[in-house]
């Protein structure tokens, strides 16, 4: 990505411009998006390499130092069992962000597939959109609870407790959050289908698959990218909600939502217990939303350059 940036910037002088170069230039002008990007990547790097640098085991209960405030030895303090909060927030971030990214990918794949099929093939439109309506009408949280109750043991047996729950949570968040993407994509495809270049492609006998991949997909990239960023935020929040309810991952497996849940009881004694994981969730979600906002502006050719 950065290579492209370098070359496009040089190319700019030579009056040669690429799509992504233009997008990047526009994106850089969006202050919120830039701050969001910096914050998000800082968090990503922190949780990715943090546990290597901050080597305290997040699960180790050092009972002699429980309920401590912020100090040099424990920058974020310790919890009621003497577990280091910084280590837990870093470790928890790995899970929360992994859940966010993976669930987003699933939702995006499903949403785009269904949206494009519904928009392009008239005979699939009705059934697929009713399916979308059906999913939209389902109450998410009760559904999640039922699915977790039904499949937790099976998946636990197949993949072990942590991976099993991870797959389950990612899967259910993914399959219950593709609907918005599907609707947006369908709308865009419907509009694009009647445009001249598509008609031209059809008239020379281009097969549907090729029309979709070659002509339609690049033009609906903008809404897809935006819903991708929003999807990450939704997935992190849904996982937090599940952990907050005491479901989801095992109790000794830190995620941001779980840390927040455990901390609420101590909110008056040790506010830092909820501030740090709460801040991490808020910052991630906010920064990702800003990135999405910036991307939408940058990818829209009618706004670009203004």
């Amino acid at each position: 990505m950065s290579d492209t940036v370098e070359t496009t910037e040089i190319a700019d002088d030579r009056k040669y411009r690429s799509l992504w170069g233009d997008v990047w230039v526009q994106f850089r002008h969006h202050r919120g998006a830039m701050i969001g990007t910096v914050v998000f990547f800082t968090i990503l790097i922190a949780v990715a390499i943090g546990p290597w640098l901050w080597t305290i085991d997040p699960g180790y209960a050092n009972i002699r130092v429980r309920n401590q405030g912020m100090s040099l030895a424990h920058p974020f303090g310790t919890d009621q069992l003497g577990r280091d909060m910084l280590a837990q927030v870093l470790q928890g971030g790995r899970v929360s962000i992994a859940v966010g990214l993976t669930a987003m990918a699933i939702a995006l794949l499903l949403g785009t597939l269904i949206g494009v099929l519904a928009g392009y093939f008239r005979w699939l439109d009705g059934p697929l959109m009713r399916l979308t309506d059906l999913f939209l009408a389902l109450p998410l949280l009760p559904l999640l609870l039922v699915i977790i109750m039904l499949f937790r043991d099976t998946l636990r047996g197949m993949f072990g407790p942590e991976t099993g729950i991870f797959i389950l949570i990612v899967f259910i968040i993914g399959v219950t959050s593709w609907m918005q993407t599907a609707r947006i994509v369908r709308g865009d495809v419907l509009a694009l289908k009647e445009r001249e270049f598509i008609l031209a492609a059809n008239s020379i006998g281009t097969p549907s698959k090729r029309v979709i991949l070659r002509h339609i997909m690049p033009n609906i990239l903008s809404p897809i990218m935006v819903s991708a960023t929003l999807g990450i935020a939704t997935a992190i929040i849904t996982e937090s909600a599940l952990s907050f309810l005491g479901l989801g991952f095992p109790s000794d497996f830190p995620t941001w939502g779980r840390l927040l849940f455990d901390g609420t009881q101590y909110i008056s004694q040790a506010p830092s217990r909820v501030i740090w994981p709460g801040l991490a969730i808020s910052l991630t979600v906010l920064s990702v939303n800003f990135i999405g906002d910036g991307l939408r502006d940058a990818l829209d050719p009618r706004i670009r350059g203004r």
Partner: peptide, 24 residues
């Protein structure tokens, strides 16, 4: 859940692997 975490740690020290589960 605190008890579970502590006991799991002690059992780890004697070479017993523990998986925790809590139910409403």
């Amino acid at each position: 859940q605190d008890f579970q975490a502590l006991i799991k740690q002690w059992w780890t020290e004697i070479g017993i692997e523990t998986e925790l589960k809590n139910i409403d």
